[in-house]
């Protein structure tokens, strides 16, 4: 069905945003309180990894 593509399209964007926001945000907060500078990047990498894992499970691995 063609309409399934539309839902998957927007769900992928939503997954990517929430991965970045949650783990990147956690990294930024940790940076702010611990006084370090690298945790934001670590958080962003974890976020992108978890987003891709979820997208893989939901849409790619049939």
């Amino acid at each position: 069905m063609a309409v399934n593509d539309e839902a998957a399209f927007w769900s992928i964007i939503a997954y990517l945003i929430s991965g970045f926001v949650f783990w990147g945000g956690a990294g930024a907060i940790a940076d702010h309180f611990l006084g370090t500078g690298y945790l934001l990047i670590v958080g962003l990498v974890i976020g992108i990894g978890s987003s891709f894992w979820l997208i893989w499970l939901r849409f790619i691995k049939q």
Partner: peptide
């Protein structure tokens, strides 16, 4: 799946 992987 290939298209969605590339898009992601």
């Amino acid at each position: 799946p290939i298209a969605f992987l590339g898009f992601a």
